[in-house]
């Protein structure tokens, strides 16, 4: 029984790690200027071990090390993070249709980021202005949603979803107002691009913070995987299993909101990953969070690397927003999921 599933999960994890490594190399190699896989591996080896690069290769090495690699790694981090947050939020609000954006945090972040794009706020922070503004307004949105959803009995799933959704509409209205008030079309375009998610212009600077937050958040959720199972059974049942539901949901809210805020700050609001990946993973390994939370980040990381590759490759030299690609993949995938027999989507 459970042993069978474990036996099935370990090879899957190994496979996904191999796929992820291959995806990183492919993600670096592919682009408007394609670089042979062998050279990519050689460059990466040289960079890590301190080897020498021939002078003629310096240009390609710059593309690999300064432009592509941080971008590919950030895609992996964001994909992993969104998938994990999606899993946690679906369990926290006990709703199979929830995603990292259901709490209104990303919409809140958008207000800040778009204000930077259109009004030129935080100009002194240079290229980090958008991320900083997005994170700060995500924090503000988190606080607002928390205070509005809170009751004497703690955060209840339905109130969280309703409050988050209502707040999201408010934030979206503000964002659209900012876009329409934009002084010139270029600012509106920059705002739109950010709203749909993009990893263009990523440097090494954003990576450590995002990676650390995703790693710590995922570790926290893994430590609580068993309790997430209990929480999925309903609040009263979870209580009888020894879980302090009010405290657990409060902590989950803080962890998922923090992770979402950071992820949205570095990449914009990439849709569908946090909704779709958890379900795809559950279809394969079942609903036990001890397996889902191991497999989901690996699958999500590879997924977003390829989405970003597509964003670069479909219409060069123009880049497409990530949200366009994830929606193009996500919608049919989702409909297929819903119609598939044998996978019970949500509760009864």
């Amino acid at each position: 029984m459970t042993a069978v599933r474990v036996a099935r999960t370990s090879p899957l994890v190994v496979l996904l790690v191999v796929v992820l490594a291959a995806s990183v190399v492919a993600g670096v190699a592919l682009g408007p200027v394609s670089i042979p896989f062998g050279r990519v591996v050689g460059f990466l080896q040289a960079a890590v071990t301190g080897g020498r690069i021939e002078a003629v290769d310096a240009g390609q090495y710059r593309i690999v090390w300064d432009i592509r690699l941080p971008r590919v790694l950030l895609a992996a981090v964001v994909g992993a993070g969104l998938s994990v947050v999606g899993v946690a939020i679906q369990a926290m609000v006990r709703n199979a249709l929830a995603d990292p954006y259901v709490l209104g945090i990303s919409s809140g972040a958008s207000v800040g980021a778009v204000a930077v794009a259109t009004l030129g706020l935080f100009a002194s922070l240079g290229i980090y202005a958008m991320s900083a503004a997005a994170f700060l307004s995500a924090l503000g949105a988190t606080a607002l949603v928390y205070l509005a959803a809170r009751t004497r009995a703690g955060l209840t799933p339905l109130r969280l979803v309703l409050t988050g959704t209502a707040m999201a509409y408010g934030f979206q209205a503000l964002t659209l107002l900012l876009v329409f008030q934009a002084p010139h079309g270029e600012a509106a375009r920059a705002a739109m691009f950010w709203l749909l998610g993009s990893l263009g212009g990523v440097t090494w600077g954003a990576l450590p913070v995002a990676a650390a937050v995703v790693a710590v958040g995922t570790a926290y959720l893994l430590a609580n995987a068993r309790r997430l199972n209990g929480l999925s059974m309903g609040d009263e049942t979870a209580t009888t299993l020894g879980i302090d539901v009010v405290r657990m949901r409060r902590r989950l809210f803080v962890v998922t909101a923090g992770m979402t805020g950071v992820l949205v700050a570095v990449s914009g609001a990439v849709g569908f990953v946090g909704l779709m990946l958890p379900h795809l993973v559950r279809m394969v390994v079942g609903s036990d969070h001890r397996r889902v939370l191991v497999v989901a980040p690996l699958a999500g990381a590879s997924f977003l690397i390829w989405v970003d590759v597509a964003a670069r490759m479909v219409a060069p030299p123009e880049e497409l927003p990530l949200g366009v690609i994830t929606a193009a993949l996500g919608v049919p995938c989702f409909v297929f999921l819903m119609r598939r027999r044998g996978y019970v989507f949500g509760g009864s």
């Binding site: 029984m1 459970t2 679906q90 369990a91 199972n229 999925s232 049942t237 509760g347």
Partner: peptide
Amino acid sequence: TQDSHVEFDFTVAE
């Protein structure tokens, strides 16, 4: 308890 609403597709053994 009375709340037997289960959102995710757990197996009986789980």
